[in-house]
Design a protein around this nucleic acid. Structure first.
Lengths: 216, 216
DNA sequence: GTGTTTTCTGACCGGATGGTCAAATCTGAT
DNA sequence: ATCAGATTTGACCATCCGGTCAGAAAACAC
């Protein structure tokens, strides 16, 4: 058992700088498109010096993704089974949209990885993402069964929320090209998405008991 | 004015093979990630022979994207101002989802390009995409003003449709990882998306005239 | 100040990659 | 059959890129 040797200030500073630079470069160019020189430049280091802190390009990428996944899944974790269904989901949408606004590079890094077949994160996808989604989907299914939410497939509902919120980070240039100057996509998106999903999710006015189970 | 010299069968065949191979490789690896050797191999040609038909890697990519955009925008063009609003939009969603199912590589190629800042298609985005979207957004706005559609920002509505439908092509691996085996994402997505947007888009039961313009 | 450890750098390496070129081979029209 | 033009190829090149290494420089402990 070797003690985890304490980090010096220099180590901390440079590793942070490298990860920050790598996030910038990887998210904009993808793994294959990024070069160590670009990352080193941005971090203010020489390439060999960068490789003094990380053993390889892949290692940087792995650490970046690992740190990312936790933050990325957190909004879904917060979905509270004890809360008011529609408001819980709308709150989830708002959190996800905030993430998309405040951490667009992280979103694009993730998108890049998935697009290319997720060669480096198949594991976490099955081990962390799937169980969490299944768990929360069950919560949503419970709400639907109780007539507190419109009947919509929980898994696909979650997909829709991911898709619509991350769209504003991942497809930012397209959104801006279409809207033209003088628009703030995220600011406009928030009330729109809330309205869209509130309409779709709110249970029908008729009570659950009023609906015949089978109208033969 | 030089006559466009007629294409031989061999030219036609090889150019098609190259574009097909390039689509496969570019969509899976991105521009920088793709190599001419990969493309040549898949097309059944040698690298120099490939470069006999296209002057450069970039030229292949440009031609691919140019051909793509037309097909990609077609579903939106078909949105009929004379149709029934909700059904028109649902039909658009179905067409877009079909595209996502039948041409996932094209969707990913596009996504890759946008993700990386659209360096090669800024032009078409402004010259073709924006005018079309603005035009159709105006149609939708008209429907809303007539009370035939729920009041939702037309531009962002279109973004939502793009996001949710393309998600099944671009994030395919993630969707499959979450759903697990034994699911056909697209088949499940169709009724889900139709239900989601039908609920969100259908105008309220109360007639338009019943709603006070300003309730101060 | 001295010795030790950490940090940093220039020079270099091997393989991949986009692209060129001269020459060989094939095709089709006559 | 012949020949011009179209097609294909192997050999080659310059550059880029991830990574190594021996040693210089800086930081730190005493």
């Amino acid at each position: 058992m070797s003690q985890p040797r304490p980090k010096t200030r220099i180590q901390q500073k440079n590793q942070d700088a490298i990860l920050e630079a790598a996030l910038e470069v990887f998210s904009q160019a993808g793994f294959r498109g990024a070069t160590l020189d670009q990352i080193a430049d941005r971090a203010g280091l020489s390439k060999p010096n960068l490789l003094y802190y990380f053993p390889s390009k892949e290692a940087i990428h792995v650490q970046l993704i690992a740190g990312l996944l936790k933050v990325w899944l957190d909004p879904l974790r917060q979905l509270d089974p004890a809360g008011e269904p529609v408001e819980e989901i709308l709150a989830y949408i708002r959190r996800k949209l905030e993430l998309s606004r405040d951490f667009p590079r992280e979103s694009r890094l993730f998108a890049n990885e998935i697009l290319q077949g997720a060669p480096r994160i198949q594991g976490p996808l099955h081990d962390e993402l799937k169980p969490l989604v299944d768990d929360k989907a069950a919560v949503i299914a419970g709400w639907i069964a109780a007539g507190r939410l419109a009947p919509l497939d929980p898994h696909h509902l979650i997909f829709s929320i991911w898709a619509t919120t991350q769209h504003y980070a991942d497809f930012d240039v397209q959104v801006r090209a279409v809207l033209g100057p003088g628009h703030d996509p995220h600011t406009e998106a928030e009330p729109y998405l809330v309205a869209l999903f509130r309409r779709a999710l709110s249970p029908d006015a008729t009570t659950h008991a009023d609906i015949p189970v089978n109208s033969r």
